[in-house]
Amino acid sequence: MDYFIQQLINGVTLGAIYGLIAIGYTMVYGIIGMINFAHGDIYMIGAFISLVGFLLMGVLGISYLPLALFTVLLLSMLLTAVYGWAVERIAYRPLRGSFKLAPLISAIGMSIVLENYVQVAQGARVKPLPPIVHGGFELSAANADYHVTLSYLQVVIVLVTVGLMAGFTYVITRTPLGRAQRATEQDMTMASLLGVNVDRVVSTTFVLGAALAAVAGLMVTLYYGVIDFYIGFIAGMKAFTAAVLGGIGSLPGAMLGGLLIGLIEAFWSAYFSIEYKDVAVFSILVLVLIFRPTGLLGRPEIEKV
């Protein structure tokens, strides 16, 4: 029982991270209908910037943990957002409205560029970071068999994710920016005719997505303590799976999908085999797409003839 609950906690933590990345995929797909293949690498860049940030905090002598965390978080969101913006501006915007596969190939190219850029700039070796956030809640029952650890870090990850999600939902549903975004999602041409600056909306989408990916990158850096230039690929693929699972284009769907993927991965690793956890995730994706192609929370699509 305690083993189960422990895996549940781990799964939820992992799911929160996947969910944050998945939002970037789902928003971009919703708005310009392309798979932003480089998004996983934006997340990887976020992780590297956070790592640099933590070391910089050490150099600057900021040792008060909440302050350091907050500063690094802001810094990494900001700088990663610049990456997200630049990728869109350079590789996708000129191809908008052109041949369908062109942006996808461009995105794959961008993903290769980002990966190898980081490899060249920072080296191919795995980068370790000693744990910064220590301790946690020990939940034990009277009999010594029952023992579950809930680290402070896990609490922080879940809380930050929930907070960001809430803020994000507010932005999308209540603000003019969100309205412009939803309008662009429905019909880009019409939105621009009605005075929505589509370019800016798309840029904002990439910036927001990248900022959330940066948060995920920071959390992974703290949670696992090791990163390398290749983490973006697998995480990106799983996050995209999460977005599809939840119903692409739907924000709550992305979060739900992320959570499910995290749980599946945690439980599969715990109870079956850790080697085949990715296989499990993708098999579930295939099953979902076959039996419910719109994802769990996606709107059903009626074929217009």
């Binding site: 797909y29 209908g33 693929m237 995209f240 080697e275 990715d278 993708f282 192609p293």
Partner: peptide
């Protein structure tokens, strides 16, 4: 099973399939 899927979904499922084959070969 997957060919009735829409274009982008097909892309992602085939991507997943490629990874599955690699992971199986590895393990």
């Amino acid at each position: 099973p997957v060919l009735r899927l829409r274009g982008d979904y097909l892309a992602i499922v085939t991507l997943g399939f490629g990874e599955i084959v690699r992971v199986v070969l590895l393990n």
